[in-house]
């Protein structure tokens, strides 16, 4: 018999799968670290406008979100089609903002509180009236760092 075929016959043809769990765990840890659990289901339709002068929001734990837009189809029967604000997971009025801000604030360590940012996720079709009311309320409550959420203009 030839030299080569002998060698081949002895070799184990199976690929070792012993390291497969390690690889999967690595991927798992990656996703666990980058993941941000979807905190609230959107009850209003929000399609943010495009802008070019954007700033990235750094620490997610320092951001509270205020959504403004028209209620989605399944909520229109109850809440109508006028633009509404959503705080957390439910519809809210402008007078609910102070409590909402306070609830978020107590979760943040004191040293980081000056860096709390309110992210206004507002639908592009909304008129400024409700946005203005929200802004005024934020100002009255001393929440001055505001981020108008927007998408980057696609470059081409």
């Amino acid at each position: 018999m030839s030299k080569f075929s002998k060698k081949r016959g002895k070799a184990d043809p199976e690929v070792s799968t012993a390291s497969l769990p390690d690889i999967i765990f690595m991927l798992l840890f990656f996703f666990m670290v980058v993941t941000v659990l979807r905190d609230a289901e959107l009850k209003v339709k929000v399609i943010t406008p495009y802008a070019s002068e954007l700033t990235k929001l750094e620490e997610k734990s320092l951001v509270n979100y205020l959504y403004i837009g028209k209620p989605t189809k399944q909520h229109q029967a109850t809440y109508g089609t006028k633009p509404r604000m959503q705080l957390g997971d439910k519809f809210a009025e402008v007078r609910d903002i102070p409590l909402f801000l306070e609830k978020h604030k107590v979760k943040v360590p004191e040293a980081k509180r000056p860096r709390i940012t309110s992210s206004l996720r507002v639908d592009g079709e909304v008129t400024m009236g409700i946005v203005q009311d929200v802004k005024t309320s934020l100002r009255k409550n001393g929440q001055l760092r505001v981020n108008y959420s927007a998408k980057k203009v696609p470059t081409n």
Binding site: T48, A51, E53, L54, T55, K56, L57, K60, V63, T117, S119, L120, K135, L138, R139, Q143, L144, R145, V146, N147, Y148, S149, A150, K151, K152
Partner: peptide, 9 residues
């Protein structure tokens, strides 16, 4: 990630 126009009121 969330991006937007940062404003100081």
């Amino acid at each position: 990630e969330d991006k937007g126009i940062l404003v100081k009121l």
